[in-house]
């Protein structure tokens, strides 16, 4: 089954899976930045979380604040069954596409002969 999840949505969902009970906005942002090894805008993460919640893939609840955030409440996210299915489908789709191929890809002699050295 083809996955409807974009790459960034998968990154956010997998961050929620990894963080478990500690999956709140800033922690998710930090985890996504770490996994993608690049800077990520807070707006992108929050917009994605809102979209995932609307799709029913995650749900959220308000939790306590901490001194470093001026006592402001945190919004914690949890994976819903539909979100778990979506992630599994996404992984299955990637595995299907890569079936029979070894990662990482290497230039074969046939490829070099046809297209020349890259």
């Amino acid at each position: 089954m083809a996955s409807d999840l974009g790459a960034f949505e998968q990154a956010v969902l997998l961050a929620i899976v990894r963080l478990r009970d500690d999956a709140y906005g800033r922690a998710i942002l930090k985890e996504v930045k770490h996994r993608l090894e690049r800077d990520v805008a807070a707006g992108a993460v929050h917009a994605t979380l809102g979209r995932l919640e609307k799709k029913g893939l995650v749900r959220s609840r308000l939790g306590s604040g901490t001194p470093i955030r001026g006592g402001r409440a945190r919004r914690f996210y949890g994976l819903q069954p539909a979100g778990q299915r979506a992630l599994n489908d996404a992984r299955a789709a990637i595995d299907q596409l890569w079936a029979g191929l070894r990662w990482p890809l290497k230039t074969t002699s046939a490829t070099s002969a046809t297209w020349g050295r890259i």
Binding site: G25, R26, L29, H46, R69, R72, A73
Partner: peptide, 10 residues
């Protein structure tokens, strides 16, 4: 509040 707190913490 929650988004503001996330940004402040970061």
């Amino acid at each position: 509040e929650t988004v503001g707190g996330d940004l402040l913490e970061e």
